[in-house]
Each structure stands twice: as C-alpha cells, then as structure tokens.
Design a protein around this nucleic acid. Structure first.
Lengths: 334, 334
DNA sequence: TGTAATATAGAAACGGTTTTCAGGTTGCGC
DNA sequence: GCGCAACCTGAAAACCGTTTCTATATTACA
C-alpha cells in the first residue's frame, strides 16, 4: 500500500503539503492541491488510520460490548449504535460477550489495547471490576440497558420497574387474578426491576402468591419461555394470564399455549416486554411493554461522543420511559 | 496510559526485554521476566495495538460487511463470524451497509484506511467495483451468501436454486397447483437463484403462470411479506400455497392469512426460506428451507484466516447444501 | 517601501514496538 | 582451561503518517 511519501514523490511536493491537502489545514495552492489529489488517485492512496491514530492519540474507534449479538433486542441496539457511529465518522469494534464475565474481561483488555476512544457497555453479570478497569484508565463509558451501581459513569437506562408495574396493572384491570410470571436471571438489573414492578402491582391488589419461574439466563432461546410456560400451565389453579418479562420468552409462551390448545387471549392472556420487531407480527400480535431500543442506542452513542475529548463534562444519565403497547394477546379472563 | 518505556524503567530493564516478555520471544531470565510482569501489573500496562500493528504491518482486525445488522439472518451470520474471530484472537469492525452501495463504498474506504487484514463481505447491489477495489489492494476477501461473479475470490454460498427447487417440489407433491411466490430484489443473487429454482420446479410440473410478487429490497420488514401476501390473496384463483423466499416475509404471510381468517395449513400452506431462529416458534411452526447460517459464518471466517498471510494459497469456494425442514405450516390443499 | 497574507519545503519530533547487532555471561565437552 | 554453543541483555535504528517549527518566497495592498 502506498504511503504519504510516495504520494509526495509522485506529486513532486513535500509530505507536509500532502498532509495539508488530506486534512485541509494550512495553505495549499490550487495547482499543488490538484497534483496531490491526482497522485493520491493514481496511486490509490488510503491514509493509514494506524499512523494517524498513533500520532493524534485518538482512534475514532468505539468498543461496543453487548451480551449477545444475534438477539432481537441487542442486535437492534447494536444496529442503532453502529448507524449513529457511522454518521459521526466513528467505527465500532463489535463484541458479543455471551453473558460470560470472563469473555467480557478479555474483550475489555482488547479494547484497551486498541486504544478505543470510548466504550458502550451492556454489562454481563459481575461487571463491576471490568467497568472499574475501564474508568481507571480514563476511557469514557456509557452503560446501556443494564446498570452497575456505584460508578460515576454515563447511563442510558429504561424505567423497567415502572414498565412492569403498569403492565401488571393492565392485566389486573382486565380482571386477571391468577397471573403467572416468567422472569430472567438474577444478575440482570432490568430483570430484577421488572420482577419488583410486577410484585409491587400484585401486592397492591392484595395478591402475594404469584406462580413464577425465574430462568437463569436470557441467551436467545424461545425454548426457555416455552419450558417455563409449560411448567406454569400445569399448576393449579391455572393462571389466566402470563407475563413473560422478555418478548423472546413470550413467543415461547404463545407456542406452549398453542400446543396445549389454549386460545390466546380468550383462555390465556400473554404479555411480553421489549417490543422487539417480531412482537408486532406474532399470532396473535403481542401486547408488550415497549422499550425505545433504537433511541437508546442512538442516545447512548451521542452521550458517549459528547464526552470524548470533554472529560470535564459531567456524566449524563438518562432514564427513559417505557410504553404499554396493547395488541391482541391480552383480554379479560373467561 | 503507560508506555513500554515506563514499564522498562520501572523494571530497570531495556524496552527490548519488555518486548521479549510480552511476545514470549527470545531469551529472558526468570527474574527479569518477573520484574517486567510486576511492573506491567503495577502500572496497568496495555501494549498499544496501534504501534504494534504499524510495526508488524498486520492488524489482527477484520472488516465484516453485512447488508443489515438487525436482521434475523444477518445478525446470526455476524454473530457466528464474531465468535469465530474472537477465538482466533482477531477483532471485527462491524459494518451495516443497509443495502446501500454508496454506504458500502464508504465502509470499504474506511476498512482500507484501517488496514484490516481481510474482509468478510455480504455484497449489496452493484458491488463489483467495491469488491474490485479491495482485491486491487491485495486485501483477502470472502464473499458470503451473495455472489459477485467474475472475481478470483473465496466464496461461501448456499445452493439456493436447489433449495427452492426442492421446496417447490415438496409443495407440488402435497398436491398444490396454485402456488404463489414472494420473491426478493433483483440485485440479490440468492434471490434470483431461488426464483429460478421455483420456476424450474413449476415448469417441470407444467405450471407456467405463477402468481408472484417481487419486492424491491429485503431490509427487515415483515410488513413486506404481509403486503405481498395481501396482494396474492386477493387474486383469483386463490393460491393454496405461498412460498415466501425469506422467513421474515413468511412471517408476514402468516399474519396476513390469520387476518383474512385463512387457517394455515388447512386452507393455505406457507413455506419460508432460511430457517432463522424464529421459524421454529411461529404459529404454526414454519416449514422452511434451512441454510446453515452459523456454519456459513464460521466457515467463511476460517477460509479468510487461512488465506491471510498465505496469499499464495488458491481461493476456497464452498457451495453448501440447504435442507428442507418440514414443520406445521404446509399440508395438502383442501 | 513596508506589512500582511499566502504558499511551500525541509527537517525534526512524536508515538510504541520490534528487530538487528553487538556485546555480554554461562555451561559443557574435550 | 580452551573453545564453542547456548543463553541473556541493551543500545540504536526502523517502521509510518502527521504535526510543527523554521526558513524562504511570492503576492497584494496600503
């Protein structure tokens, strides 16, 4: 690959002039500019981002760490982040931690070696030490979706507790009293918040013994929701509604109901959480709690880019609202 | 961030010795090694990948260009690629071209500037010139899913024509004679191959006037399949089966049938293509043509990594087989 | 004529790593 | 105890694109 020196030789100018042309800095006459541009074209020259980054001490590169890349929620988040970064002329190292803290740790080491200008992190499990290492090194970080308490760091989160609370109130308002819940892993703060929201709403209604299944992880398996629903739909008394705390799991609930011959929503109401793209097209269409996934990714990216080069700015913390989306999978109990 | 020089000073050795410890190259005595390792730990040292890459003229970095990141097919592909790269200690610049050749072009320039060691490309539209620029620069490339003819380049493709042919034969064997087809954009070679496969099977059965809709792009919109199905299900005679050439579109067909009160598969058979994770959990479960998505990503990554540093090796070309997955969305016509 | 703005080149410095070379020290066989 | 090989270490140069500093030179205009 040609270097700036070869371009300079070909255009019969100094490297300083080529640099000025590339960066549109300083004074360059029209004809030298053209000669340089012609030389760059004819040599097929592409300035080395490596050398530039080394000299400038910034890479225009961001690390994006999500728990799982082929997941309807996180792939949409990653998509939003990548799109926003591209528009700002930043690049993304995309990392799929697979809900594995050790893997997350290896990724963070990698990102530090790559000298990324910042990190967008959806933490996995015990991430406090991983997050601590980033902050210690002075790398700007934004937490998205999942919080890690105790750090002075930017955050873009959703009000999961309130979303789950209101969704449960919706089921209660429809007349449901036997509401099954399928929750997620303990290590996920949004999951804990949702569980709390559900319990708070039920407790207000005087209901304290909810049938529930808490699955150990949220890796993309519709099966998880299916199995949990099968368990709930065997118990007595049969729940008249099931609140699955992710859409992916709700899909499994729909399947389970279908197999057991339970009509949704006539015999069983099903509620999801997230409003992933598929939720609007399930059969029946899923009533769910919408998280503004794309906006979360976009906002997190903007928050991060604002902080890069402005470490003196205070951290930005956002708690976005969810929104109940009533579709066809919920109805009053029979 | 600390430099190798600071580590050397702290450990009272030369930078060369620190480098030898980091890279486990050459001779280093036990006690110097320990001194260096302690210094690295206490300084929280992370070797600069920038400086290393600049010197070594290799970055251990791959560009991954897919048409759309938040798509069940491509996000699974990206996931498989990222996972395989991580295991080989490579990193991924993830790029979502959004089916836009201009954007793809901008990404390729970026990847050239970043001096990626190779590119995994799912081309978008008129990609011949973009692909040509990569090859001209001597960057190893693997094409995945979509072919661009006329280049001496590695490929990991699926036998789309045969897959579609066999799926259509399956519908014919069930007794269907009025089979609607929902195809994809002209620019996508797999789509053209699938359309050809369907037509070949129908022609063999003496059927030449298939009702069909060819949508202009495959950006992730279940809606596309929904609208196309609505169009097909208004025509006379009503098709007894619809073959949607992607699962995402097939989901839209299921929705449309549901809204029109058509029972699947009793009154309408629906067939998809891809076997994305959701296909096994739709209602009813979708009969589809399985592409080994994960294996494609894995294989493409391995093929690329083998070629990096071994430009003398011949290109590797794979044509993987599809597999018909019979589930519950197809049956003999009423 | 003087001053300011414009225009260009040469050379040095920067950043972290790796390699080369050159000079050391052991250890072992004979 | 000599020679040779293996082991160990450091100094210095090289890698590459950008920036910056200095040094000229030209043009424009007051």
């Amino acid at each position: 690959m040609p270097t700036i020196r070869e371009v300079a030789d070909q255009a019969r100018v100094s490297v300083a002039t080529v640099s000025r042309v590339i960066n549109k800095s300083g004074y360059v006459s029209i004809d030298l500019q053209e000669r340089v541009e012609n030389a760059m074209r004819s040599l097929n020259y592409h300035p080395s981002a490596l050398a530039r980054s080394l000299r400038r001490q910034e890479t225009q590169t961001i690390g994006v760490l999500v728990p799982q890349l082929n997941h309807p929620f996180f792939s949409t988040l990653a998509y939003a982040i990548e799109k926003t970064l591209f528009d700002a002329e930043y690049r993304a190292f995309m990392c799929s931690a697979e809900e594995d803290p050790l893997r997350e740790c290896a990724y963070i080491d990698m990102l530090l070696r790559q000298r990324v200008d910042g990190v967008i992190l959806v933490p996995t499990g015990q991430s406090a030490s991983n997050l601590g290492r980033l902050i210690e090194q002075g790398v700007p970080v934004v937490l998205v979706d999942r919080d890690v308490p105790g750090f002075n760091v930017s955050r873009v989160l959703c009000n999961n507790e309130r979303g789950a609370y209101e969704a449960t109130r919706h089921l209660l308002a429809l007349g449901h009293r036997h509401i099954g819940m399928i929750g997620g892993p303990e290590y996920s703060p949004p999951m804990r918040a949702r569980v709390n929201g559900v319990r708070a709403a039920l407790a207000e209604a005087g209901i304290h013994d909810t049938p529930q299944v808490l699955v150990p992880h949220t890796l993309y398996h519709v099966e998880t929701g299916y199995n949990a629903a099968m368990q709930l739909l065997k118990a007595e008394p049969l729940p008249t509604a099931i609140f699955a705390l992710t859409d992916v799991m709700a899909m499994g609930v729909l399947r389970a109901a279908n197999e057991l011959g339970l009509r949704v929503p006539e015999q069983l109401s099903v509620m999801g959480f997230d409003d992933t793209p598929m939720a609007a097209y399930s059969i029946p269409e899923l009533t769910t709690v919408r998280q503004p996934i794309f906006e979360m990714g976009q906002l997190a990216t903007r928050v991060l880019l604002e902080r890069i080069g402005h470490a003196e700015l205070p951290v930005a913390q956002y708690m976005l609202d969810t929104c109940l989306i009533e579709r066809a999978s919920t109805a009053p109990p029979a």
